[in-house]
């Protein structure tokens, strides 16, 4: 594989990492909660997408229209039913640690539920383009990865526009900057929190449909992506939207380029090493400011 092809593969995987990290960074930026269920919710999205794909035979990408609203509702309800009561009980606490643990417990519940319902088998959506490779001059890239890259970039762009220019987006940003001031301006904080969690989860459904044509699905698939998403958000700056995408792409590129020169294990170690390097030298990440929140 030529160097440019390696770069293209890294870009596509990186953009998907970025998309997953985007949900994480959004929920953190607004609610100050690290969502440990992010990986498990990704797994759930992948399972639902796979199911729908197997049942309908439609292109996985078309399924976004169905899966994204489902995941939005799942996220919205998670916030309302599980997180809000705990947040309310801990109003006087600065960093709601219990909520974080709650999401971790939710992850255990979801993963084992999937294990009970689907079993431990590995499945993948074998679509018509799963084995197709596209060639752009000297660059060859797998079709599924290429489409994944396009979808991830388009959705990230749309999400950015939504956050910057829609009224809901403004509400979200205002709540993230100063919850009390936003509340005084008439923003319904309870609703905004639920929406933030819903959108953060819906973004995962996009990553899920982009992944299923070329990535195996199993009950603990989320764990792999969650650790990556953590690294990505610290790299890009916790709470920063462009940081999440850029951080994801950096990690994707490091992985695919390093894999050409060293063993898979060393590649993983290298990713952690880069993470530590950033943490030690510029701990607030590329776009983040440690004192924003």
């Amino acid at each position: 594989m030529g160097f440019l092809s390696v770069v293209a593969n890294g870009l596509s995987m990186g953009a998907i990492y970025g998309l997953i990290a985007l949900g994480l960074t959004l929920i953190f930026g607004i609610m100050k909660i690290i969502n440990f269920a992010q990986g498990a919710l990704l797994m759930l999205s992948m399972m639902i997408s796979y199911w729908l794909w197997a049942a309908t035979g439609l292109s996985p990408y078309v399924l976004i229209i169905i899966v994204a609203p489902i995941m939005f509702v799942v996220g919205y309800l998670c916030e309302r039913v599980l997180i809000k009561p705990v947040l309310d009980a801990q109003k006087d606490v600065r960093e709601p640690v219990s909520v974080l643990l709650l999401t971790a417990a939710l992850a255990i519940v979801l993963e084992n539920l999937a294990l009970m319902v689907f079993g431990a088998d590995y499945v993948m959506a074998k679509t018509s383009f799963s084995d197709v490779t596209l060639a752009f001059g000297p660059v060859t890239v797998s079709a599924a990865r290429f489409y994944g890259l396009i979808i991830a970039l388009v959705v990230a762009g749309l999400f950015y526009l939504f956050l910057m220019y829609s009224q809901t987006g403004r509400n979200l940003r205002a709540t993230g900057q100063d919850r009390n001031a936003a509340s005084l301006m008439g923003i319904d904080i309870t609703r905004t929190y639920a929406i933030a969690f819903g959108i953060g989860t819906a973004l995962l459904s996009v990553a899920a449909v982009a992944l299923i044509p070329f990535y195996y699905i199993h009950p603990s698939v989320g764990q792999v992506f969650m650790t990556k998403a953590f690294i990505v958000v610290v790299l890009g700056g916790l709470g920063s939207v462009p940081g999440a995408l850029l951080g994801g792409i950096i990690i994707g590129l490091i992985e695919s380029i390093a894999a050409q020169y060293m063993t898979a294990t060393l590649t993983v170690i290298l990713v952690y090493a880069v993470f530590l390097l950033v943490l030690f030298t510029k701990p607030s990440g590329i776009f983040g400011s440690p004192y924003e929140w």
Binding site: I34, V234, Y272, L276, P283, S284, P290
Partner: peptide, 27 residues
Amino acid sequence: PTFGLRGAYYALATVAISEGIVVLLNN
């Protein structure tokens, strides 16, 4: 390096470092 920052960085750093050490030990 992490205690100078707000709490969430410490939490995320500990997750990433421990995952890294698991990979190292496994290999």
